[in-house]
Design a protein around this nucleic acid. Structure first.
Lengths: 335, 335
DNA sequence: TTGTAGGCGTTATCAC
DNA sequence: GTGATAACGCCTACAA
């Protein structure tokens, strides 16, 4: 028979004092006598008192809860970003509500609605692949809940977004390829409506220009990151009369597919075709033939930075926030 | 200037009716006139009304929230279990609070405390490696919040736990090894205080017995699943005068370390030493030399089953629950 | 130093 | 069919 959790009322009754005294005593309020405080604290412990957060949230109109929405936790980039975010949040005594939109716009809207209903104090989000309308997030902002983007942001929307410095990283990758004598360097990009894809492209382009190499349209492909389309993109490249000798890839998970496709369908080009992706997945350390390199991102730091910024916004709701793009450096990591 | 979320009070005022009418209308209460209902609904939409869950949770003494605590979301077994759990929960209009204990007992206690304070309605947990005391969970149970274990359970504790049928799986693995003419079959197990380790061992033992092979103590090792200790366990096996030709492993993540150690430190035995782990990680499909096989678990189904059971317990709090061990079959999967 | 009272948004009970 | 009211647990001005 589960006994109901005890409340400050129970403590008050037991000590024949008022609830407000109990409340103050529990919060170390200055004008509560030492003896009273002592008695309250010990009775609280004795009754196994645990503050009822549902009541506190309700009363305070504040839940000390942050939401984070990611496409999927199977992608370690996001899992680690969640870790960084939680670290900062829990240091500030905030709880984190995690949601996976599973790349579905519908699911994302539901998650946002649930979180809004649960009155989260702020949201960090990497939008789904399908998301082409930000009304659900605007509604959040309008009700006073700050929204911060990370990793993905539609090109035409003006919002603050934290991500990796993928532009610089792409340039570095091209430099490395060139230094290894590659001249036909291909690029498989992600969805073109994200800033992070555009920036990768610009870095790739500027890297080629800087090295006086031509921009060849045939060498540039786009994938929605699904395995079939990753394969399709690679096949198109390898079936060119003159296939590339090096490929820059939007992401390590895309690179995994590309490696497997290359090995099984184009063995003559494997492992000679050199690859660089984004992410630096630790699992490559288990590979016999790891790719040439990866642009190591800093998901933990991105999550942590996002957490601090969001908390800052929450603590200073009046302060005007001008949208900005924040980016953390990537590090070209050879395997 | 963020305008506060509107409440049923606002709707009531705007229509000059009472809050109770509004509340009933919003809930499709039978004795509300069609016209009134219509007006309420449309005003609600117009005011962008979103029910305040903090108030509802408080009022109902129920949060429609389930907690799930896992060691880490970097392990896809747990990530997928979370997915199954969430699927069932969200179908029943429950929200899920996810926590990672990061294999720390301290962190686990904090998580449980936060969740208890947030008045979750039930908890599913895979305890940390360090957890050797279940008082924090007993306290939950005592306050009426059901606790369900999965994947890991201390041997001496009587609780309901959902996991894979690892016993049967181990026997199957031994059979496969034997059919491939292996006679010296080693086993690297996980922490011995978990039932899931004991059961793996029993399956391994009975598999050997069934095939009339001796139980050789030297061929059995234990690791706490950390990379250094995974390496250590393998080295001890391979440095035996007569190393094993096949190894059964507690988990695929352990197998990854073992494969890498084998390849780099004992190349003469790689890839001839055949390996079978638990998990069937999809990433093996990207390996040039995948292991022999893996015992494919069903994390999604485990999470889903756990969700249904927990919801059942919540819906029937009076009903007595007798502790039981529930296990879902593994499937021996060749790569 | 301690106590009283009002209120946060919602639902349920009971009256009309 | 609709409305008034109490209650959930906690906090906080204000009163004593």
């Amino acid at each position: 028979m589960p006994n109901k959790p005890s409340t400050i009322k129970d403590i008050a009754k037991m000590l024949n004092i008022s609830v407000s005294t109990v409340s103050k005593a529990l919060h170390n309020h200055p004008n509560i006598g030492a003896i009273t405080k002592e008695r309250v604290l010990s009775t609280a412990k004795q009754l196994n008192y645990i503050p009822n957060k549902t009541a506190i949230h309700f009363k305070q109109q504040k839940t000390f809860t942050l939401g984070i929405i990611v496409p999927t936790l199977l992608d370690h980039f996001y899992t680690i970003a969640v870790d960084g975010f939680e670290k900062v949040a829990s240091n500030a005594k905030y709880t984190v509500l995690i949601g996976q939109n599973q790349e579905s716009f519908q699911r994302e809207k539901e998650l946002v609605s649930v979180m809004q209903s649960n009155r989260i104090d702020g949201l960090l989000i990497a939008i789904s692949k399908e998301t082409d309308n930000l009304d659900h997030l605007r509604r959040l902002e309008q009700s006073g809940i700050p929204v911060l983007f990370f990793a993905r942001k539609p090109i035409n929307e003006v919002y603050t977004c934290i991500s990796s410095d993928v532009y610089r990283a792409a340039k570095d990758a091209v430099d490395l390829f060139v230094s290894r004598n590659h001249r036909r360097i291909a690029f498989i990009n992600g969805p073109s409506h994200w800033t992070t894809s555009r920036d990768r492209y610009l870095g790739y382009r500027d890297g080629l220009l800087k090295n006086k190499l031509p921009i060849v349209k045939d060498l540039i492909r786009e994938s929605d990151l699904s395995t079939p389309n990753n394969y399709k993109a690679l096949r198109e490249l390898m079936q060119l009369p003159n296939p590339p000798s090096a490929i820059l890839l939007f992401k390590d998970y895309l690179m995994l597919d590309v490696m497997t496709c290359l090995r099984t369908e184009f063995p003559a080009y494997y492992p000679s075709t050199e690859l660089i992706g984004y992410g630096a997945l630790p699992l490559f350390s288990h590979f016999e033939h790891p790719p040439l390199a990866s642009l190591k991102e800093q998901p933990f730091e991105i999550g942590a930075k996002a957490g601090s910024l969001l908390l800052e916004w929450i603590d200073h709701p009046q302060q005007e926030r001008k949208p900005q793009l924040i980016s953390l450096p990537c590090k070209l990591t050879l395997f």
